[in-house]
């Protein structure tokens, strides 16, 4: 029985398909969900998600925070703040964003705690995007 898998963000459904298994970054570490997984609600971590499709191919998706719900009948819903397929990531823009965020973080004494946390989250997110994006480029463009 394939898993009914959906990635939903505030901007809509990014990905929806029947899949074999999926590896998801959570705050407790990477988890891999196969069919008939126990129902679970957990918190997402910025990082790379590997979706293994039924035909054997894999898709890499960069996600930033959010949460996920696994229902008993092999339905997996990822509620991510942002989710991007590897081929959609603009690497140079991601690197620029990372650089900007890191520079801002250097002036940390001027920052409020909230801004600091936001910047760290942003850096994590951009790192995940760069990671996923450059991996895709290595496989497909060389």
């Amino acid at each position: 029985m394939p898993i009914d898998f959906k990635i939903v963000t505030p901007y809509g459904v990014t990905y929806s398909d029947e899949i074999e298994k999926v590896s998801i970054p959570t705050t407790n570490g990477m988890i891999t969900v196969c069919e008939r997984h126990a129902p679970l609600i957990s918190v997402l971590q910025s990082g790379e998600m590997n979706v293994h499709k039924v035909d054997g191919s894999t898709i890499n998706v960069a996600v930033s925070g959010g949460f996920l719900e696994i229902q008993s009948d092999s339905r997996v819903y990822i509620m991510a703040d942002t989710a991007e397929r590897a081929e959609e990531i603009d690497l140079s823009r991601a690197q620029d964003a990372l650089k900007r965020a890191e520079e801002l973080l250097k002036n940390e004494d001027k920052l409020a705690d909230v801004d600091f946390a936001l910047l760290q989250a942003k850096i994590e997110k951009e790192l995940a995007r760069i990671h996923v994006g450059s991996k895709y480029r290595e496989v497909h463009l060389n």
Partner: peptide
């Protein structure tokens, strides 16, 4: 019957 990871409070804090 649901599992909560890491725990219910963290999840509520996120959601």
């Amino acid at each position: 019957n649901y599992l909560f990871e890491p725990d219910l409070e963290t999840i509520l804090n996120t959601i």
